[in-house]
């Protein structure tokens, strides 16, 4: 029972951002977002949990984290460690300006039918149970070279998962492994970004420059200049254009010490903007999600996009 929960959570860790209905939240929590001088470090916690920011569920692996320095160069994750509930790492903030620290992920997932049986595409493969039956010809998990699969005879796609709860879990790792005979192919592209921003001396906007791809955070109020008695204005873009109807959730940390979650649900207007009022100072978890029908892969029908961040709001 417990084991299954963890499995689902592991999948949530990788795709939670693509599925807003999933309660588990992925987060990075920096020790601070504002530093004086360029001889400092920021130390970051990384985890997946329901309540913010309590690492009580699944650790995020610092190996997935990238660092963008203010000048566009790549920064370094130092002292990475993955504990039971929490990953941690340090970043030397040794150049002035705003740094971006986070993860980017894109995948195509969904389902198809083969000989009347339902198969899943993408997601994380559950560990193979010892002695679990595999469909004949299936390669061990993870060993199937992508691209080789379509040539395989129908009935033997790349690989298969183990048996869980008596239900066969049939799965291929990627779109490339969908066999030619597949029917009812339903695929969704998921793009997710989670990033935190840390500034040494004056904040800069270099790392916030939009790339024009997917859902992007284009803040009018700098994320490292948030004050509890000042309204913040955040714009969201999809493919470089202001995106209306983006759902933005903001949750302050520290629920343990109050009665309610105090989550705010906002939606961007035609100008792609949300205006945020902060009920209290503190660290906030933000998640913005939207969906459209412009996936990069022709076989996919929808594109789900998520942008997440942890924002520090100081008292005036």
């Amino acid at each position: 029972m417990r084991f299954r929960t963890v499995l689902i959570a592991a999948a949530a860790a990788s795709s939670a951002l693509a599925t807003p209905a999933m309660a588990h939240r992925q987060w990075l929590l920096p020790s601070t977002t504002t530093l004086a001088g360029t001889s400092e470090y920021v130390t970051v916690d990384a985890a997946v949990s329901n309540d913010l920011f309590y690492p009580d569920h699944v650790a995020l692996d610092p190996a997935a984290v990238k660092v963008w320095a203010p000048d566009g160069s790549e920064g370094k994750v130092e002292n990475p460690s993955k504990g039971r509930y929490r990953g941690t790492f340090d970043v030397a903030i040794d150049k002035p300006g705003t740094w971006k620290i986070g993860m980017e992920r894109s995948m195509i997932g969904g389902t198809f039918k083969l000989n009347g049986e339902q198969w899943r595409v993408g997601g994380r493969r559950p560990p193979m149970a010892p002695g679990a039956a595999r469909p004949s010809g299936a390669a061990p998990a993870g060993a199937a070279p992508a691209g080789a699969a379509p040539a395989r005879a129908p009935g033997a796609p790349g690989s298969a998962g183990g048996q869980a709860g008596g239900q066969p879990m049939r799965m291929v790792a990627s779109v490339a492994e969908i066999p030619a005979g597949a029917t009812e192919v339903k695929l969704t592209e998921s793009l997710s970004t989670y990033a935190i921003y840390v500034s040494a001396d004056a904040p800069t906007k270099g790392v916030l420059t939009p790339t024009g791809k997917g859902l992007e955070f284009d803040p009018v109020t700098h994320p490292d200049a948030l004050v509890s008695d000042e309204e913040a204005q955040f714009r969201f873009l999809v493919d470089g254009k202001p995106a209306a109807g983006v759902k933005v959730t903001l949750v302050p940390g520290g629920k343990k010490y109050r009665e309610a979650e105090h989550a705010q649900e906002l939606t961007t207007g035609a100008d792609g903007m949300v205006r945020v009022k902060w009920p209290v100072a503190g660290m906030y978890w933000m998640s913005a999600t939207t969906e459209d029908a412009k996936p990069s892969d022709k076989r996919a029908s929808a594109r789900r996009m998520t942008f997440g961040s942890t924002l520090e709001v100081v008292a005036p």
Binding site: T32, T34, A36, S39, S199, A225, V314
Partner: peptide
């Protein structure tokens, strides 16, 4: 040294934002 006196200037958080950081 490793922790110069300037390190804690950001604790003057309003001033830091209003001009200290530049």
């Amino acid at each position: 040294g490793r922790e110069p006196g300037t390190k804690w200037l950001a604790d003057l958080r309003s001033w830091w934002r209003k001009g200290g950081n530049t």
